[in-house]
Amino acid sequence: MSLQFQNASTRIDAENAQDPNSELFQSETFPKELLYSNRMYKRLMDFYPDASEEVQIAAKAQHICRWKMPRESYPMDRVGYLKWREDLKKFHAKTTASILQECGYNQKIIDRVSFLIEKKLLKKDEETQLLEDVICLVFLEFYLDPFVQKHDTEKLKNIILKTWNKMSEKGHQEALKINYSDANLQLIKDALGL
């Protein structure tokens, strides 16, 4: 692990630690986006330990400072949601690029990290696909359950199917190894027609 990466990682963590929103996990309270960042990085290293430094940074910074651009600040319809998602990607990429510049990374690496965070060429670029697999795996492992509490079965099946369709075959295999509740595993199987 390079000194540059350590510095960038520390800076990303420091930014995410400022999240005013918190999440309880294993009887401990964490800033929400710091916990997400740590989950992303751990899942990436478990899933693909040879990931490039650029992917590692992109995984850690995937939701950097997300609370600064709340969903409620956009129209609460499909168009508003899509615009919010698009603006978020650019915001995360720009915030991360600024940190990487301060840590002395060259422009080529900064541009590549931004490319990955903006999820460009999904299904065509191997590293973008790797990052998307990790995002989906983290969602299925840690964030599916809160969705189950909020949505009806048909909407949940649709969410699972959309998530599944973004993943690679290797991602699918990894997703089926996650330790789901019996109810969530059945929901996934029903959504996928397994």
Rank of each mutant, 00 (worst) to 15 (best):
L3E: 14
V113A: 03
K150D: 11
Q4S: 08
A8G: 04
M167H: 03
K189L: 10
L35H: 10
L88P: 01
E33G: 04
P75A: 02
Q149F: 10
A191G: 01
N158K: 14
K83E: 12
H151W: 11
V55S: 05
A191I: 06
N165A: 08
A59T: 01
M40W: 01
W164C: 03
L131C: 01
E169T: 15
E86K: 13
W164G: 03
L82M: 12
L144S: 03
I12K: 04
A183P: 06
D87N: 09
D133F: 01
Q62L: 09
K162W: 09
L100K: 00
I117Y: 01
N158A: 12
E54A: 15
R11S: 12
S22I: 13
R11N: 10
G171T: 00
C136F: 04
R39T: 01
E23A: 15
E118L: 01
E102K: 15
K155I: 11
V138H: 00
R112T: 05
I117A: 02
S2T: 15
K150F: 09
D50Q: 15
L156E: 02
D13M: 12
L121T: 10
W164A: 04
E102W: 04
F147D: 13
N158Y: 12
E141A: 13
E127M: 06
G193F: 03
K94R: 14
L130D: 04
I57N: 07
A17F: 07
K60R: 15
Y74E: 03
A97M: 11
Q62G: 07
W164Y: 11
D133M: 00
V79R: 13
L44Y: 01
T29R: 14
K123E: 11
Y180K: 04
N106S: 11
K166P: 05
K166Q: 14
K120W: 06
F139D: 06
F5G: 05
G193I: 02
K32G: 00
G171F: 02
Q18N: 13
R85P: 03
R78M: 13
V113T: 07
N38W: 12
L116E: 05
S114G: 11
D125R: 07
D87E: 12
K108D: 14
S168C: 05
E102F: 07
D133S: 01
E54Y: 06
L121F: 12
K157M: 09
I188G: 06
S52A: 10
D46E: 15
N16G: 00
H63T: 02
S168Q: 06
Q62M: 08
L185W: 09
D145S: 14
N38R: 15
L194S: 13
I159K: 04
R85N: 07
L137T: 01
A59W: 00
K162D: 13
S9C: 11
Q101W: 10
L121R: 11
Q186D: 13
R78V: 12
K170Q: 13
Y41W: 10
K42W: 09
I110E: 02
C136M: 14
D125I: 04
M69W: 07
N16W: 02
R11C: 08
D46H: 10
K90I: 11
